[in-house]
Amino acid sequence: MIAELPWTLPHAVAGTMVLALNAYVLLGGADFGGGVWDLLARGDDREAQRALIARVIGPIWEANHVWLILVVVLLFTGFPTAFAHLATALHLPITLMLVGVVLRGSAFTFRSYDRSRDDVQRRWGRIFSVASLLTPVILGVCLGTVASGRVPMDGAPTGGFVARYVLPWAGSPFPWAVGALTLVLFAHLAATYLTLEAQGAALRETFRRRALRSQGALLVLSLVTLALARWEDPTLLAGLLRGRTALAMHAVTSAATVAVVWALLRRRFAVARVAAAAQASFLLWGWAWTQFPLLIPPSRTITSLAAPRVTLQLALWALGLGTLILLPSFVYLFRVFKRTGAPFDATG
């Protein structure tokens, strides 16, 4: 099969990367969002809020990073020069993001595995929540920088350190708008998932309110991001506003948005969760679609940056093989824990 359709190989690998990123947003993103709500926990029952968040993230540890790693590994396997370029041009933000990943992962582990609840735990809790903010924002900044063609592979910026390695991502509002959008998106996902996980009515209401508010923030930020994109460079991201597919993308995203709000208002939490996940996924795929067929805008396409065919084929085979092993494992996992209502069905 694959051998007969060589031209689709790079796109298949790139598509798989977006899929993995999608999984990271839905699963890892919700973990990050949990950290946001941990930081913002208010009211008399804030310890109960934190306990709920910890319980939901608990059993998955930081296993959800595997999706991010999959994106990275596919990038350096399938598009090695693109990986090398991004790791150089975005060296600083990626480093920052990694600091966040390390602090968050460890803080969470230590906090939840440490038995005595004392100030050690609280300290870890602080680190955990602050790192939860840092990582999503920077992740969004990186994506926004790439998408808006600020780190071109041809005609990269010249000049000093700041001009080459800082200004492209830090020097204009668009990437930061995407960063903020990412953070709010993650927070919204988490709040929506948590309505379903909360055991008491009061707790559920708390997270329902938060889900609604963050959905509002999400709408505002989406519009701001779009406006910024238009304002900074009308030709970039033009695909966002033109063409039948773009319109279709907007239509389904809007539909999902309406569904989220409706479901939250009517307290249909299971529906809200599915709709929120759909909304996030449509946003992501919408971005992927506007950027297609470019991998590193404004000039380099997916095909032009692809590794040799055999590498891509093997990468896809490896993915297939992995899926063959992972899927039954997952099914088993869910079946084992379904019977008890143990927390595994939460974010994974």
């Binding site: 790693i69 596919l74 399938g78 090695p80 090398a84 370029h85 990694l98 590794a307 490896a318 992995g322």
Partner: peptide, 26 residues
Amino acid sequence: ELGLLWPAFMAHAGAIIGMPFSLEGF
């Protein structure tokens, strides 16, 4: 870090030794 520190290495080696890393992920 493989990319942050050794971009030129990864630009060449990625296509060759990327597969074991994907398998490791699984």
